[in-house]
């Protein structure tokens, strides 16, 4: 197989009409990889403060997500219970271990299990790493605290998002991720999520809930009101 590798690299260089890159050229490319440049950030990916929260909300709703505001993390169980009740959905939830320190089962009528989602879990509750106002997109990370199966297997997908972690543009999230995890470090899966699963493959009709969740509900932890 290493023959194939060698052949392909040679063909590429032949196609480009040159030999291997010179040391100087390589160090220039390395520099950019070590400190990536941002390109043009569109207007809708700029701004700050309340404007971002408002834009996130509007854009997420455009993408068929629903949003409810809660004052603090401790209110998440009540928020989840209210949503499930309103839609007549099962009250057994599978939640991310990151949310284990919230009291889920007291007085809300919920039963909660924690960890990755299985085939029979109807409701998945997890927590987003960030939100992107530009398109109302959630950014979730895989890992033991927030297993990625929670995002895809359950019919109902409920995500907690701290309004302080709503950023203007995708690039802001990359910057934050590099700061928090260390430059060049990535979890196995970083997923941008805009609304519930969908398809227009049959006669161009928009249908929700194709393979992933049928509905996406965002609980926005937002002490400031709005």
């Amino acid at each position: 197989m290493s023959d194939a590798r060698k052949d392909i690299l040679e063909r590429i260089r032949a196609g480009l009409g040159r030999g291997p890159l010179a040391e100087g050229a390589i160090s220039g490319l390395e520099k950019n990889l070590a400190a990536p440049t941002r390109h043009l950030i569109p207007e809708r990916g700029r701004g700050e403060g309340r404007a971002l929260v408002d834009r996130f909300r509007a854009e997420a709703e455009r993408a068929n997500a629903t949003i409810a505001r809660i004052a603090a993390r401790e209110d998440a169980p009540a928020g989840v219970a209210a949503y499930l009740k309103e839609h007549g959905l099962p009250t057994a939830i599978r939640a991310a271990p990151a949310l284990e320190n919230v009291s889920w089962t007291e007085q809300n009528g919920l039963t909660a299990g924690f960890g990755q989602a299985g085939a029979d879990d109807a409701v998945g509750v997890t927590q987003a790493f960030a939100g992107v106002a530009e398109t109302g997109t959630l950014v979730t990370l895989s890992g033991p605290q927030t297993p990625s199966s929670l995002n895809f297997l359950p019919d109902t997908h409920i995500v907690l998002l701290d309004s302080a972690r709503i950023f203007a543009a995708y690039e802001d999230v990359w910057t934050r991720l590099r700061t928090e995890l260390g430059s060049g470090e990535m979890p196995r899966a970083v997923t941008w999520i805009a609304g519930p699963s969908r398809s227009a493959d049959i006669e161009l009709k928009l249908l929700l809930g194709v393979h992933g969740p049928r509905r996406l509900h965002i609980l926005l932890i937002d002490g400031q009101g709005g």
């Binding site: 990755q116 033991p144 196995r188 899966a189």
Partner: peptide, 24 residues
């Protein structure tokens, strides 16, 4: 392609992940 501002799911899948990642 579809006239969406963004696709519903965009996943950046990187390596095998940590030992304790329950999925993947």
């Amino acid at each position: 392609s579809t006239g969406q501002d963004t696709a519903t799911y965009t996943t950046f899948c990187t390596g095998l992940g940590a030992e304790d990642d329950p999925d993947g």
